[in-house]
Design a protein around this nucleic acid. Structure first.
Length: 564
DNA sequence: GTAGGGTTAG
């Protein structure tokens, strides 16, 4: 097992850490109440009234928190904010700010939605209003920092808070590190915990199992799970679900069956999520029929399907070209007591969109609204796309200005792509400016669409300009692929040198592979791979490309990989 | 009631 205590040294180490279990540190610790007035206490009747009011307030906070949690689960962060503001206003009459649990729910919802600035602001407001944070508050902030790759801040927070760092805080940090692909550092934190006699839990190991799995290192994940059993921290359904998902992605369905059979003699039971993962995995590998068979197995085990299950099944039916079955299941879902959510509708509608059946899409859209299922941005985008395909693109474009339809980068990509495709360059450019006005950042797909369209128009300088702009948010192989292939096909291969000369582009072996492959496909010969050499502490790889015909031969570029 | 796993788009 790979482990490195040294990795913890990558993070600032506090002077004297200690550790407590999550059970005893997870309680709200309100600030001491203000000193009681020295005069007489209120008469009994008034006391009763106060007590009733307090209970009502307490109940209201509970209800609001449940509502906020549900809204957050549905992805409606603004809804969460609205309920919180309502609570704040109601509290303002009696002078009580929202309690720590409600604040946590809001901060967490904002953090999950990537709205870090607002999350921190709410946290600061909570402190300012005299509400003391609890262990969960700090864990949410740790998660927030970790998601922004600010691991030093997260580490600092673990040891700076008034509460002693607990296994939950460390596990949250480990999760963040693993998500960022920093498994070695995650091991470092785990070692640090062990040194401090803080016992890891399943929550501590499972993210590492996941990191291995998503890196395709399934055997190492299995070894770690065996190690977990060995140290008495048994993998649970979540851990096995992570493994099953990786096995599915790798098409190793026999092993999935084996894991499921073994569960009968082990200390975990498959859940609905397990079967959701399995069915979806089968479906993605073109085994829709086998996926539908697993539904019977799942029901046979007494497991209830969820909204996820229904969406996955609908996806299977769509992939199995059983669209009528899908529509039937969707329309009868309520009487079958299968909860159909917005995703279920989106799944079927997007398949209908691919088939150009936009009347059927409008029918389902009406159905869902009648059922009280609120369309979301994805629904909206499916509608936009189907309108474009149905040659109603001006109607599609006008929709982005209408209230209640939150257009996002995907919306703009669909429209920009469509207008370019129809040769309406002015419209496309207008949308690109509009995006900027609305502060909607371009993504890889936007750049790919723009670069491809400009190259088609022969505007290679402008296309290269957009490619260089795209580098600000990191190199996208998709954008580079489009640019290179268009340049090569337009016999503008030496333009490529201009790109490679840029300081902000450090080509690695992927870039080289792509470049060479593009040249070869276009009929140019790739003659020589030079041996890598070490030069001034850097590993340099050089590939010499000799070109057919009058261009003669020339050196393309030098890639420098690694460092001292 | 906070920390780990599952569905749909360009």
């Amino acid at each position: 097992m790979a482990s490195s205590a040294a990795a913890a040294a990558l993070l600032p180490i506090p002077s004297s850490p200690s550790c407590s279990s999550s059970e005893d540190s997870d309680e709200a610790k309100p600030l001491p109440p203000p000193p009681a007035p020295e005069d007489h206490s209120p008469p009994p009747q008034q006391q009763q009234q106060q007590e009733r009011r307090r209970r009502r307030g307490w109940q209201m906070e509970r209800d609001c928190n449940v509502a906020m949690r549900d809204l957050a689960l549905a992805g409606d962060v603004d809804g969460v904010f609205a309920v919180f503001d309502e609570l704040k206003r109601a509290g303002a009459d009696g002078g009580a700010p929202p309690n720590v649990l409600c604040c946590n729910t809001l901060v967490n919802a904002l953090a999950e939605a990537g709205r870090a600035g607002e999350a921190l602001k709410v946290f600061e407001e909570m402190l300012a209003s005299g509400v003391a944070p609890n262990a969960s508050s700090y864990n949410i902030l740790i998660k927030l920092h970790a998601r922004q790759l600010q691991f030093d801040l997260a580490w600092e927070l673990i040891h700076k808070s008034d509460l002693e760092p607990d296994v939950g805080a460390y596990s949250t940090l480990i999760t963040g590190l693993c998500r960022a692909g920093k498994v070695v550092e995650a091991w470092g934190v785990l070692d640090w915990m062990l040194e401090k006699n803080c016992r890891p839990m399943v929550h501590t190991y499972t993210p590492i199992v996941q990191a291995y799995c998503s890196d395709g290192r399934i055997e190492e994940a299995k070894l770690l799970m065996a190690e977990m059993e060995h140290v008495g921290c048994l993998p649970n359904a979540v851990t096995y679900n992570v493994l099953i998902r990786a096995l599915c992605d790798d098409g190793r369905f026999d092993e999935v069956d084996q894991v499921l059979v073994e569960s009968r003699t082990k200390d975990w039971k498959p859940t609905t999520v397990t079967y959701n993962i399995y069915m979806n995995g089968l479906c993605r590998k073109g085994k829709a029929k086998e996926a539908l068979e697993q539904l019977d197995v799942m029901l046979g085990e007494g497991l209830d399907p969820t909204a996820y299950t229904l969406s996955i099944l609908l996806n299977c039916l769509c992939h199995d070209s059983r669209l009528l079955d899908a529509i039937y299941l969707l329309q009868r879902s309520t009487e079958l007591k299968w909860y159909a959510g917005v995703v279920a509708y989106n799944t079927v509608m997007s398949r209908l969109c691919e088939m150009g059946k936009w009347m059927a899409i409008l029918k389902l859209l009406t159905d869902m609204i009648k059922k009280g299922i609120e369309p979301n941005t994805r629904t909206f985008n499916i509608l936009i796309r189907s309108l474009c395909v149905g040659r109603k693109s001006s109607l599609a474009k006008s929709l982005i200005h209408s209230q209640g339809f939150p257009a996002n980068v995907v919306t703009y990509n669909i429209l920009i792509h469509w207008f370019y495709y129809r040769g309406k360059l002015t419209e496309a450019n207008r949308l690109i400016s509009l995006m900027e006005e609305k502060n909607i950042a371009r993504d890889e797909v936007t750049y790919t669409i723009i670069v491809a369209a400009l190259c088609r128009e022969g505007k290679f300088d402008a296309a290269t300009g957009f490619f260089l702009q795209s580098l600000k948010s990191g190199l996208s192989m998709d954008v580079l692929t489009v640019l290179l292939s268009r340049l090569v096909h337009a016999d503008k291969i030496w333009e490529i040198n201009r790109i490679f000369d840029r300081k902000d582009l450090a080509p690695d072996h992927h870039v080289f592979d792509l470049t060479i492959r593009t040249f070869c496909r276009a009929g140019y010969c790739c003659l020589r791979w030079d041996a890598p050499r070490i030069h001034e502490g850097n590993l340099e790889m050089q590939q010499t490309v000799e070109l057919d015909g009058e261009s003669g031969s020339g050196q393309l570029a030098v890639a420098t990989i690694g460092g001292p």
